[in-house]
């Protein structure tokens, strides 16, 4: 019963809220899609927190993504103990970066007078949640060296089963408590995602790499708007 709630109901609730929430926010409250940078109010301590945090979390996130998408690749890599160790150590190193960064960020937010003004409840909720999640992650990495293989062999199928709308919880139910907590916290993060600044991750500006540097926008197609033969019911282009 509890398992069903935590590993079936919660994931579906979280994913639905995530989808509806982020899309609604993007369409109707686009103004709120922002990284809400606080560098303008405090720039030095930010550096020591935000840099290790972000590089760490990007690598860790990519690691999880790979294990989810190509579990066989991970299993093949892990088939030699040395390589398993390398993978686990790398993961742990970046996770520790995240941990250190996050602690510094949280400490900075809670102690700086100016930052208190721009820190709302959700900023704190999400950073505490991330902190719990990272601590659990590090714990698994230290306590269960074969965690990455588990993810690939057991958790990836579980996640896939959720996306196939045919949830299989047997494998998850057999996991140690820490792993269970890690999964639950993950879905909690997904759940609150749309209501936090994490939405900035969804709009990371990769398109900058292929767009020309300058942007000029015309309200109408300038060459046709004044031509008598072009029709009047033309709509202005949507530029943004």
């Amino acid at each position: 019963m509890l398992n069903n709630f935590l590993f079936v109901a919660l994931p579906y609730a979280a994913l639905s809220v995530f989808l509806v929430g982020t899309i609604f926010k993007y369409r109707s409250l686009k103004f709120q899609y922002s990284s809400l940078s606080s560098q303008f109010l405090e720039g030095n301590r930010l550096f020591w927190g935000v840099i290790p945090f972000h590089w760490g979390i990007l690598v860790v996130f990519l690691g999880h993504l790979t294990a989810f998408l190509v579990p066989r690749g991970i299993l093949a890599w892990n088939s030699r103990p040395l390589r398993l160790l390398i993978l686990e150590m790398t993961g742990l190193a970046f996770a520790l970066c995240v941990l250190v960064g996050l602690v510094l960020l949280l400490y900075r937010r809670l102690t700086n007078e100016r930052l208190k003004v721009v820190t709302n409840r959700m900023d704190q909720v999400i950073e505490w949640l991330l902190l719990v999640q990272v601590v659990l992650g590090c714990w698994i990495a230290v306590g269960y060296r074969w965690g990455s293989s588990w993810f690939a062999s057991d958790l990836s199928p579980y996640l896939w089963s959720i996306f196939r709308l045919d949830p299989q919880t047997t494998a998850v139910s057999a996991m140690p408590l820490v792993v269970k907590l890690h999964i639950i916290a993950a879905f909690l993060i997904v759940l609150v995602f749309p209501f936090t600044r994490l939405v900035h991750f969804l709009v990371a500006p990769f398109h900058y790499t292929w767009r020309p540097y300058q942007r000029v926008i015309w309200h109408w197609d300038r060459r046709t708007v004044r031509r008598p033969e072009s029709s009047w019911n033309q709509h202005p282009p949507r530029n943004n």
Binding site: K30, S34, I217
Partner: peptide, 21 residues
């Protein structure tokens, strides 16, 4: 941020700005 073609005014679309600063 973009330049308006018609008159060259440079503007920031507040709904697209993500505080990358």
């Amino acid at each position: 941020i973009y330049k308006r073609g018609e008159d060259g005014v440079v503007l920031i679309n507040q709904e697209v700005c993500r505080a990358w600063r």
